[in-house]
């Protein structure tokens, strides 16, 4: 399940950024991989594909900065 989430996220980021690859711990905001437009697209993608709602207080870049963090965030939401 964990890997499935990570692969979905990875393929989305690779698709929208046209990067060849991205590691689980790579900061997608630090390197300018993800711009502000893509941040919104990422949130929409997560909400729709994992059937969760990202609340106002969760709109924190720390939750979305790496594939690992995104996976943790989604898993936590799913299990809550």
């Amino acid at each position: 399940m964990e890997n499935e989430i990570k692969e979905k996220i990875r393929s989305f980021i690779i698709r929208v950024t046209r990067k060849q690859e991205i590691t689980d711990d790579e900061d997608i905001f630090q390197g300018g991989i993800v711009n502000s437009l893509l941040t919104l697209q990422l949130i929409l993608f997560i909400e729709k594909n994992f059937d969760i709602s990202v609340e106002n207080e969760e709109m924190d870049i720390e939750n979305f900065k790496t594939i690992n963090r995104i996976e943790e965030f989604i898993s936590k939401k799913k299990n809550s």
């Binding site: 905001f29 502000s36 941040t39 919104l40 949130i43 106002n56 207080e57 709109m59 924190d60 870049i61």
Partner: peptide, 8 residues
């Protein structure tokens, strides 16, 4: 949140 303006 503090710091959420530019990204969100």
């Amino acid at each position: 949140r503090l710091g959420s303006a530019l990204r969100f």
